[in-house]
């Protein structure tokens, strides 16, 4: 092959790479294509974080547009987004917490210290502001598994019929909210 053309190959590969990198810059790697989008919330019966007498079921949530926010006090990014979520709540957004406890390991078969966790959560929310209507405790991570949660924080947008419209991985901040969530909610209210 011609030496001149051979010399051009690295340049051409690089140009191609640049095109992908440029596109990737405006795509969002945190956007997961979960199988759950467009489906209804999986059915569940789980206790309230603060009161185990109170049990929440999937049908209790139907009838409102809400955000389901997967979080835990062990997760620094979750803590960071709490104050912004609280702002959203003050603007009238309904946010329900799905508490994901990382420290609890069923393999040890041990009693879980729920009171300690509650104190911790209360102390945390007193510091940052409390964005949640209530928190669902998913100790055995069954609902998280059904939803395809891969970590925390993750947030789902659910409409009045209980259909999941969005699944966002990573924190919610003003930029994410405006570009991703707000347009969807506008659509719903129109």
């Amino acid at each position: 092959m011609n030496r001149k053309l051979l010399g051009l190959i690295p340049f051409l590969i690089f140009i191609l790479l640049c095109v992908f990198l440029y596109q990737g810059l405006f795509g969002n790697p945190r956007e997961l294509q979960t199988g759950r989008i467009g489906h209804t919330m999986p059915s569940f019966t789980l206790p309230d974080l603060m009161d185990e007498q109170k049990q929440w079921q999937d049908k209790d949530l139907i009838g409102d547009v809400y955000l389901l926010n997967v979080w835990g006090t062990w997760c620094p990014t979750c803590i960071a987004e709490l104050s912004y979520l609280t702002e959203l709540k003050e603007q009238g957004v309904k946010i329900i917490g799905l508490y994901y406890e990382q420290a609890y390991d069923p393999d040890f078969g041990d009693q879980f210290d729920i009171n300690k966790l509650r104190a911790e959560v209360q102390a945390m929310l007193a510091r940052t502001g409390n964005p949640y209507q209530f928190n669902i405790l998913d100790l055995n991570r069954t609902l998280a598994l059904d939803l395809g949660v891969s970590g925390a924080p993750e947030t789902f947008l659910v409409d009045k019929k209980g259909t999941i419209l969005l699944h966002h991985t990573g924190d919610i901040n003003q930029r994410v909210w405006r570009s991703k969530f707000a347009p969807k909610i506008m659509e719903l209210t129109q």
Partner: peptide, 17 residues
């Protein structure tokens, strides 16, 4: 990146022969 790498690879292509 495009300026530095693209520029130098173009220079390379021009001179390598």
């Amino acid at each position: 990146l495009a300026v530095v790498v693209g520029g130098s690879l173009a220079l390379y292509a021009a001179r390598v022969a």
